[in-house]
Design a protein around this nucleic acid. Structure first.
Lengths: 234, 234
DNA sequence: GCTCCGCTTTTGACTATACAAATAGATATA
DNA sequence: TATATCTATTTGTATAGTCAAAAGCGGAGC
């Protein structure tokens, strides 16, 4: 274990155990230098890493202090369905239910903050995991941002995965909510009308332009999000 | 802007824009040293930061490469309700509906991975935002982990907030799912039986011991989680 | 062909040092 | 008293080097 890792985990342990509480002062760099008999650079690296994770705050002249916990900043892995299913060892397939090229309506345009006449590809897709409908995906792809979508049939690759290959990195906004299944959704997902469903809405951008907007609706009895947050992970 | 920040954002921009795609090789350190006319430490710091964020992977001898995007690693702020409401400028109050000290049942004990006879404080709490019921909180607090909960009435501070002061840093696991309101829940939340509700389950540990287990149920029409993810944030 | 050995490249960790920026607190000045 | 200035402390960034560990590659030997 490297010195800088030792410093990092030592301090982290003191914070997590409650030994050092929010607002408490952390020894200044030269004290840690003396304690660990290393150079200031090494101490600085450890403290900077702790600061970047939000466990401490650092201020010139005054020193470093244990931060107030950020109530619960949780990292959740929200994956595309096929990858998720594969990782969990389930069999996944999908069907394209609808595919058409249209122009954005007024209301949608406002929702997406995009011009009302923008050309889009509108997709509807059913995901089936282990033989049961697991999600219905309603997607809008902006054709000026991803012109190659015009020729793609999505017969062999799910839209989410395909887009990831086209647009590798992006900004994204997520909304998770609970909704009741309407008649159409219930029929497609083979569940009851009014059944509680978990809905994930995601809008992604690249270079400030909307790439895609998608709502994925899961039946509540067959899907949940789970995530673990732990400060320890160096 | 510091040199190391410039290197960081330059490379990040190339990745986000899609200019450099997953699997592409990033210039080795000495090339970047030449390009930016700086020391190897500075380059290394920038690349390490990129690696820590999962944007690149580094391997000795072979070099650094653009990572495959982690589909959607999203940071969601899951806060305690009173803080959340205050931040959004809403009026928040709460009522303790039930408070009793018991021992864990067999089924619960298994679910929490705790001994079946452990003494717990069981709380039920209604959160009211802007005059409307916004969430029902069903909580178990392990009394051996937080003995001071035995004397706390929670009359003036919500249990979540109180616990945060007692146990400042912890590991937590979250599950988000959609459930239908049962009769009791519907009555308390002043909604219809069967209404879709968003349920957040959180189990918190400190030093390997369960501190608390809580399920917070929100009416689907009055609550959602939202979070933005963007790789750019140095 | 195959295996082992050593060479080379690249990242990883670290040192010792330097100067700059921020700023709390003390001191001097109006 | 209020304000401006100085000083000491602490962090932030950067340099120029060292040594080490990992791992790809080619060649020697079988």
């Amino acid at each position: 274990m490297s010195i800088y890792q030792r410093i990092f985990t030592d301090i982290e342990t003191k914070i997590i155990s409650g030994d050092w509480r929010p607002g408490d002062r952390i020894p200044v760099e030269h004290e840690l230098v003396a304690e660990y008999r290393c150079s200031r650079m090494t101490v600085s690296k450890a403290l900077s890493a702790l600061a970047e994770r939000g466990m401490i705050v650092r201020r010139r002249k005054t020193g470093s202090f244990v931060a107030s916990p950020q109530i619960d900043r949780t990292v959740m892995d929200i994956q595309d369905i096929s990858t998720e299913a594969e990782l969990a060892g389930h069999e996944h397939r999908f069907e394209i239910l609808a595919r058409k090229i249209e122009r954005l309506g007024e209301a949608e345009a406002q929702q997406l903050s995009e011009p009302a006449d923008a050309e889009v590809l509108r997709l509807q897709c059913l995901h089936i995991v282990d033989g049961r409908p697991n999600a219905i995906e309603r997607r809008i792809i902006m054709l000026d941002a991803v012109p190659r979508a015009r020729e793609e049939s999505f017969a062999s690759i799910p839209p989410g995965k395909w887009l990831l290959e086209q647009v590798p990195w992006s900004k994204a906004k997520h909304v998770i909510r609970a909704v009741s299944a309407d008649t159409v959704t219930a029929r497609i997902l083979q569940t009851e009308r009014g059944e509680a469903c978990l809905s994930l809405i995601r809008q992604t951008w690249q270079n400030g332009r909307t790439v895609t907007y998608v709502e994925i609706t899961h039946p509540g009895d067959r899907f949940q999000f789970a995530g673990t947050f732990h400060p320890t992970a160096i």
